[in-house]
Design a protein around this nucleic acid. Structure first.
Lengths: 339, 339
DNA sequence: ATCCAGTATTGGAACGGTCCAGGCGATCCG
DNA sequence: CGGATCGCCTGGACCGTTCCAATACTGGAT
């Protein structure tokens, strides 16, 4: 009596050699069929395809990566999926990658300072850094040299000259929003400034538009969070010479501004108008109905994917490029004429 | 003059053999150090580690996967990252996977019907299906047999008996919400029922609680979207015998209900109370201030990760388990006493 | 000195693909 | 008719690991 069973454990999935044996050809030919080479006769090709179908053959990505010395994978560094901005950008990026046979591998730049290095260790073919990168990320990207192509999406980043950049034209967006408020007769307009390069660009666009209209700007430094928007708006709106309009750093910040106005009993837009930026899902909520600048963020993600795919195709070894997507103003119920 | 440069292209990253040569040992020993085997002398171990550090060696995951015949990767099937519920669950799941040395690979079940099969083709070690799975997903999971362990997170799914299940106790949550409304003296309460198993469970909990209090329920079939919540609430609230409270299928649906109440000029909670489910970011918005059932969804994600890790460790080849997380009611400004 | 039991180390065969240098008929051309 | 050409196909090396069987030491007991 045999104690060892004859079948060797759980049946392994078929390999290229199994298929070759079944089709009566060499494994090399199966490989050629796999990458549908034109140098295979129709007859053989059909035989191989039939064998594959019968066996339910699926190529092993690990083996392929090892031999090809590329993974068909791109790392995507995100900060916070809770922020719909990142999700929307990802929604634009993902299909492009898919169309180029690339898989996204998400990493969290906020909780994991070594995200870029970790992705490099995984041998991703390229990296998309979404949003304002942490200092550590910048260092690591620079450290990569030209080993791995990098695209920065969603922000212009002056410290990073080695990567392609695709971003919303923040300057233009801030001008749109400011012009809208000026047209409604607002003169006392406050702007809550966001952090980093994006914050600076939006501020500069705002200031330029204000001055061109002969109006003095009033900027306060803030960040992208609801809490800060709330706190700063309370301070701004609690004064006698309170602004009649507030241009928030982004939608999230604007949500905080709305809350502050509500608490102070100020009608929106009757007594104070509020403008956000990014046109996220929050802006569209009926109860908020926030006028916002649509940064076409999905389009940014799409362009970023295309830029990376072009780099990977190798047909574009030129200097890093910058591409700006033109934003658009979406007017809703949170803005109206100044009293 | 030589046209061909002497260095063979871009320097390849160091391999286990490079390290071995540098440390003066065999590649096998380097491999042993890599998996820190106790059967290596301290002296050699130190030499190998030093060589690795000097060369900046990083193991190649593809080669490792090929040899180990596992990828240390788990597929996560999601429907919609736009919905914060999925994001919050993912936030609970991700750290657990990370702690077990597993990487998540996200797939979109909504746009890609073959998501489960595609993940299997990628040779993921396990799969987490988040939310109510599409029919195609169910078929594919069943088709996998026991080749790949599967955990369903966020919903009980009676059609899927091969997988572990971790979910919120929807029945209990609906009871909490309903009891809260009854305590406030509401008697005409409408419930918008969500789709699938989750919708059924919440409905049953609601009905049971209503009947136990001697009150007749009023359920209408809906789904999880804002649009449907809006439409159904308009119908419900437009009648003379309109309900004094509405238990929405989830928060998103509740957002639509609020919009309907606003349009009809009905005060919330003065003339109608509204309850959501999931306690997402929407419920916490000051302008909405939605009473909601916190489904502790991050905890669900965490438990799902642990269940999958246990399966992968192989120490638990038992029958599929079901684990329910107890929800909690979060009372905010959208509910109050019946008039 | 010899043998033995461990322990530390090594060589080589996988793992499942890609890719390259030929091989082998059949066709073409001089 | 012989050789070059072409189209199709094959064997084998290689990608960077893991794992196993075999070997080389070490020191103590005989």
């Amino acid at each position: 009596m045999r104690l060892v069973s004859t079948d060797a454990g759980p049946a392994r999935p078929p390999t290229i050699r199994t298929v070759a044996a079944r089709a009566g050809v060499s494994k090399s030919l199966v490989s050629l069929v796999l990458q549908n080479s034109p140098r295979v006769s129709e007859q053989r090709r059909a035989a191989v395809l039939a064998a594959m179908a019968e066996l339910g053959y699926r190529p092993d990505p690990a083996a392929r990566s090892l031999a090809e010395r590329r993974t068909r994978t791109v790392g995507v560094v995100l900060d916070d999926l809770t922020n719909p901005w990142y999700v929307d950008l990802l929604a634009g990026l993902r299909p492009v990658l898919h169309d180029h046979g690339l898989r996204p591998l998400l990493a969290d730049g906020a909780t994991e300072p070594d995200a870029v290095a970790a992705l490099a260790d995984l041998r991703v073919d390229g990296i998309v850094v979404v949003g304002t990168p942490a200092d550590s990320s910048i260092e690591q990207v620079v450290g990569l040299g030209d080993a791995v192509p990098v695209v920065v999406a969603g922000t212009r980043e002056s410290r990073l000259t080695v990567a392609d950049v695709v971003a919303n034209d923040d300057d233009a967006g801030a001008r749109l929003a400011t012009a809208h408020l000026l047209e409604h007769g607002h003169r006392r307009i406050a702007h809550i400034v966001g952090e980093g390069e994006v914050g600076r660009l939006r501020r500069d666009g705002h200031i330029a538009t204000m001055r061109a209209a002969g109006v003095t700007e009033h900027c306060v430094d803030g960040d992208w969070t609801e809490a800060t928007g709330h706190r700063l708006a309370r301070e701004l709106l609690d004064r006698d010479d309170r602004p009649t309009a507030i241009l928030a750093a982004n939608d999230l910040c604007a949500v905080g501004v709305l809350a502050a106005a509500d608490e102070l009993g100020l009608a929106v837009p009757g007594e104070v108008s509020v403008v956000g930026y990014d046109d996220t899902v929050f802006a569209r909520l009926p109860r908020l109905s926030l006028t916002s600048v649509d940064s076409h963020i999905a389009e940014v993600g799409q362009a970023a994917g295309e830029a990376l795919a072009a780099r990977l195709a190798g047909d574009d070894p030129g200097a890093p490029t910058t591409r700006l997507i033109t934003p658009a103003l979406v007017v809703r119920g949170s803005t109206g004429p100044a009293r």
